[in-house]
Computed example of a mutant assay.
Amino acid sequence: MKSLLKIFRTITIIGGTLCISYFLIKETSINKTKIVEGEFLFTLLGVLLGFAFTLLTFIISMLDKIKEQVAKDVNKTKVAKDNIMKRIGFLHSELRQDIYFIFITFIIVGVSIIAEKINFPFSEFINSLGTTKIEILNILKFSIFLLNLYVIYDLLEVTFSVSETTSISSQP
C-alpha cells in the first residue's frame, strides 16, 4: 500500500509540475529566460550532481560513524538501535533516489538539446495541437528545473536528518 501511495504521490508531483510549466510557458514570457535554455540547465544539473556526490561522500562517512556508535552503545535497547538503523537505511535510500533523479534529468536535458536541432516527422501533428516542438521542450525543461528545486530541498532535508540522527544516536 505504501508503494502505491508513493507512486501516486510521484505522479501527482510530476503531473502538477508539468501543468504549472505548461501554463507558465504558454501564458507568460518565461520561455524567453535562461531557465529554459538547455545549456543553462545542463550546467545547473552538472553542478547539482557534483553537489549531491559531495553530500553522498560526507553523509556515508557520517552514517558509518553512526552505525559504529550505535553498535557500541550498551545503553540503547535493541528496538532503539533497530529504529536508528532503519532511519539510516531510509536516509541512504532517499539520497540515492535524489542522485538517480538528478542523473536522469541530466540525460533528459542532453536529449532535449539534441531534439531542438532535429526536425521530427510528427512536427506537423504537434503544430496542429496549437503548440510547437520548442514549447513542448521548454515545458519539459522548465518542469525539470522546478523538480530539481524540490530535489535540492530533499537533499537539504536528508542532510539535516543525518545531523539529527547523529544527535539521537549519541544520546544515552
Rank of each mutant, 00 (worst) to 15 (best):
T12Q: 03
T12E: 12
I13L: 13
I14R: 04
G15I: 05
G16L: 09
T17V: 10
L18G: 02
I20N: 11
S21I: 12
Y22N: 15
F23S: 09
L24D: 04
L24S: 04
I25G: 04
I25H: 02
I25F: 05
I25A: 06
K26S: 12
S29H: 11
I30N: 08
I30H: 06
N31M: 12
N31L: 08
T33R: 02
T33M: 11
I35H: 02
I35F: 05
E37T: 03
G38I: 12
E39T: 13
F40N: 10
F42A: 06
L45S: 07
L45A: 09
L48D: 02
L48R: 00
L48N: 00
L49H: 12
G50C: 06
F51T: 06
F51C: 06
A52E: 14
F53T: 12
F53K: 07
F53C: 09
T54L: 15
L55H: 04
L55D: 02
T57F: 12
T57I: 14
F58T: 02
I60V: 12
S61Y: 07
S61N: 07
M62P: 01
K65V: 00
I66T: 02
E68P: 03
E68A: 14
Q69D: 09
A71H: 10
A71Y: 08
V74E: 10
K76Y: 00
K78P: 02
V79C: 02
D82T: 14
D82K: 11
N83W: 03
I84V: 04
I84H: 02
I84R: 02
M85F: 05
K86G: 05
K86L: 11
I88Q: 03
I88T: 10
F90A: 01
S93L: 12
S93G: 10
E94A: 14
E94L: 14
Q97D: 14
Q97T: 13
Q97L: 09
D98C: 10
D98N: 15
I99Y: 03
I99L: 08
I102E: 03
I102M: 03
I102C: 00
I102V: 14
F103K: 09
T105C: 10
T105Y: 11
